[in-house]
């Protein structure tokens, strides 16, 4: 039963060909097969959003998608958004506004926020909170997270994310 399946993914602009078991989750393919450990596994039950990545531009929970379901897709992870010396405005804003404490939920928060700003470059505070319904933080209580998203929007973070 099962065997392995070949999956073609373009992750952060780089093409990959992976041999995976059908039951391999996208988040494990990203973390364990491709070494992109910025995407976190939190609750592993589709609740917390720590595993949020973009799949063909849409924010999705990568713990609830089989790698085989992503065949032929473009995936953007937190590593694809920006890095040291080249931070994305959302990463800058989370830093400046202290939008994190332990940091575990942060990659998912930023990817969900990036998807929001790509659709709605200047959201209201209520719209930011609503857009983060699927992302749980157990430390900061959201106040600084929402503040960071709003200041990133002001700084023009709403430009489309390259993938």
């Amino acid at each position: 039963m099962s065997g392995s399946v070949t999956v073609h993914l373009t992750v952060n602009g780089v093409e990959h060909e992976l041999e995976v078991e059908p039951r391999r989750l996208l988040v494990h393919a990203l973390r364990d097969d491709l070494g992109l450990t910025g995407t976190h596994v939190g609750c592993d039950t589709s609740n917390c959003g720590a595993c949020t990545v973009h799949l063909n531009g849409d924010a999705v929970k990568s713990c609830t998608i089989l790698a085989v379901q992503a065949e032929g897709s473009a995936v953007t992870t937190i590593e694809g958004l920006g890095g040291e010396g080249n931070l994305h405005p959302l990463q800058e804003a989370f830093w400046n506004d202290h939008g994190l404490q332990c940091g575990y939920c942060t990659p998912g928060m930023i990817m969900a926020s990036a998807a929001l700003l790509a659709e709605n470059a200047h959201p209201s505070e209520a719209e930011v909170r609503h857009a983060l319904d699927g992302n749980l933080c157990r430390c900061t209580g959201y106040h600084n997270i929402v503040k960071a998203v709003l200041s990133a929007a002001e700084a023009g973070a709403g430009a489309p994310v390259a993938s």
Binding site: G49, T52, D58, A59, K61, D133, G134
Partner: peptide, 9 residues
């Protein structure tokens, strides 16, 4: 329904 990520899938 649920949250934006779930509504996308």
């Amino acid at each position: 329904i649920a949250d934006p990520q779930v509504r996308n899938r």
